[in-house]
Design a protein around this nucleic acid. Structure first.
Lengths: 142, 142
DNA sequence: GCTACAATCTGTAGTCGCCACAGATGCAAG
DNA sequence: CTTGCATCTGTGGCGACTACAGATTGTAGC
């Protein structure tokens, strides 16, 4: 009748197992706890952390959000929203704002790409008296 | 005959003037010196930094390279290359490598953009029982 | 020369999101 | 009981700055 995980302890995980299961580095997990992103787990008699299933869920949540590039402070908000439920609109807004950030970064990087490409295209090693790339960097007056 | 800047001191700049002229923050300029990117300038009797024209040129070089997104360690190499002259091929290689980095970052960000867009498109606030964004983040098993 | 006030000085700590280490414990198997 | 791995705490590093605090120095007006 009583299955093994009727015992609460049995479902709890050491930090190493948690790490493997979620793909989050041990040190990173402790870091998340330190900054208050992951709740403090119970401890064993010897002060080792003992993670309950909800910790696994939260850490996996954090990992997936990180994979989507959300900053930790935003993830903090998302976790709160998720706990509150009924958050679809806000979640959408937060995600859309994040996508705007990403797109801004892409635009910035594309500008760099174009500028670098111009320099590279101008540069024909061995066929010019001076290097266009170095000239651009060392330009007297822009 | 003797023009004002026959006097060497006259062409030297305080850090504030250097900062304005190159557009590099004062603190940043000192930081570049600390990490050995910008050579240490002479000092006045009162230990204030006194920058010669070559410092202006180097700092302007650094600034332009930073605007192109080169990391400081690469800029260190570029400065050395520039001082050595006859560097066109290497400069081109360094720039091309940097462009590859930029393009990799763009590709990564575009992946994020697409993933976020899928979530945003799936999310229609008020028309669904649960939020697709939150479901994706809190997914039981990926 | 004196007095304000601005500029500069040094040194340190904070940012973001981790990762790595040292040295001390804890724990489980043989 | 010992061996050897896991975990503990605390600290410092990364990149590229920025922001102070508190002490000097430089300079302009009087």
């Amino acid at each position: 009748m009583a299955r093994p995980d009727t015992n609460l302890r049995a479902t709890c995980l050491a930090i190493g197992v948690l790490s493997e299961r979620t793909g989050v580095n041990i040190e990173t997990t402790r870091y998340y706890e330190r900054i208050g992103l992951l709740p403090k787990p119970d401890r064993t008699a010897g002060r080792h952390r003992s993670y309950a299933p909800e910790h696994v869920a939260t850490l996996a949540f954090i990992r997936r959000a990180r994979e989507l590039g959300f900053p930790l402070e935003t993830i903090r908000d998302l976790i709160r929203l998720n706990a509150e439920g009924a958050c679809c609109e806000t979640a959408r807004d937060v995600t859309a704002a994040h996508r705007r950030d990403i797109r801004r970064k892409i635009a910035d990087l594309r500008k760099l790409d174009r500028a670098l490409s111009v320099l590279i295209d101008e540069c024909h090693p061995g066929k010019q008296p001076s290097c266009p790339i170095m000239n651009a960097l060392a330009a007297r007056q822009p």
